[in-house]
Design a protein around this nucleic acid. Sequence first.
DNA 1: GCCTGAACCATTTCGACATTGGTCAAAACA
DNA 2: TGTTTTGACCAATGTCGAAATGGTTCAGGC
Lengths: 227, 227
Amino acid sequence: MVQRTEEAARELESLRTFLRDKEIALNERLPPERELCEELGLSRGKLRKALAQLESEGQIWRHVGRGTFFGPRPVLNLGEVEFLCEKCRPTEVIEARMAMEPQMAKLAALHGTAANFTEMRRCIRLCRSAKDWRVYESWDNNFHQAIAAATCNKLLISLFETLNTVRRSTVWGQLRATRLPPKDHQSFAEHDDIYAAIVDRDAERAAEAMRTHLKSVRDRSYAPLFS
Amino acid sequence: MVQRTEEAARELESLRTFLRDKEIALNERLPPERELCEELGLSRGKLRKALAQLESEGQIWRHVGRGTFFGPRPVLNLGEVEFLCEKCRPTEVIEARMAMEPQMAKLAALHGTAANFTEMRRCIRLCRSAKDWRVYESWDNNFHQAIAAATCNKLLISLFETLNTVRRSTVWGQLRATRLPPKDHQSFAEHDDIYAAIVDRDAERAAEAMRTHLKSVRDRSYAPLFS
DNA sequence: GCCTGAACCATTTCGACATTGGTCAAAACA
DNA sequence: TGTTTTGACCAATGTCGAAATGGTTCAGGC
């Protein structure tokens, strides 16, 4: 039994080193499974197990007929989002978030289920334990997405996914340029406040906590521009 | 000169009667220009002039490589919107509107330009003068879209277009079933209030007026269900 | 019992070709 | 001379079939 898990771990590691060495870019498609089998000297079954592990970690995503891709799964059709990304100034993104997210926090406090709260806790926990700014960003994203899910309103969820995708692309562009520090203790406390208000079913407090958080994010993001 | 305009008018009328007699459905593609030329016995130039007139009236829309279509131009990719229309309950649509539109009214009060205000006035005027519930709905839509445009935030505008398209489809379904009266004096006054607050640059009052309007719409739409 | 390899499936991508609205210039017409 | 028609061309889109891809199943082998 130990033999088997050890072997699986080695296969997983060989896949990870492949991604690192080949310097696969974000959203880039990696070779089809059948080619990767030969390249890594694995059977397709073994390879698929390793890929499944990476997928569960959110490192890659797969789609029948399209391929396997590096990075988080895009939630929406890329065409429109690319269009929006090009046309939007970063200030527009934060303005849109400040318009939408406090209202969604309200609805999350009103309609959220226990499962939604569990997911929020998970995101907060993994946000805190992130050793890398990239992983932190990912779980921060998931936290806000979890709040959207808690509204139990499919239309709002879909709208927020679009907003979030645009946000992610612009933020990532910023991060690559400015190399922000990966850990941000202020955001941790603010996330806690938002979560507490939602679980308490206190809609107004949830909206206010979200507003405070977004203001804080905005000031931190754009303060360097004026200093 | 009179001869020529008379002739153009006759060609335009023959095209209108064609649309009526063939009972072209909403969003249906009508025959390509080259076929229509033969069918109506017009040269392509004449036909295109008549088509341009209908397009300027908003009756049809055209796109290179796709064709000419009956009805208002869809503002977004239909695939996602159709998906959302099927999956959304009407209560979700009004909930999403109550979350987004008051915030957008705020931003419209802050960032709106004179051109935006002129467009809002036009929509309000044409809303009042509408003799048909279908036309009324159309200009009501345009009014809310004008408010979105006044935020000067391309991302929010795009998000609202999606919301508005979903709303339109569900509202149209309702209307066809329940045959609501086309004129609604309460909405007229509410539109005026929203417009006045935005022009006064009073963000909070604009949001409150929008909230009042949406509550009123919600109560009128769903009151019949509980009576 | 488990792994392997191959085959098969549903979905998607890609390329070649036909179609369509937009445009222009020469021909035909008045 | 001025206008309209006609045909041709262009860029963008739809169409359709072949190839590619992830997901699944199953017989064969260790």
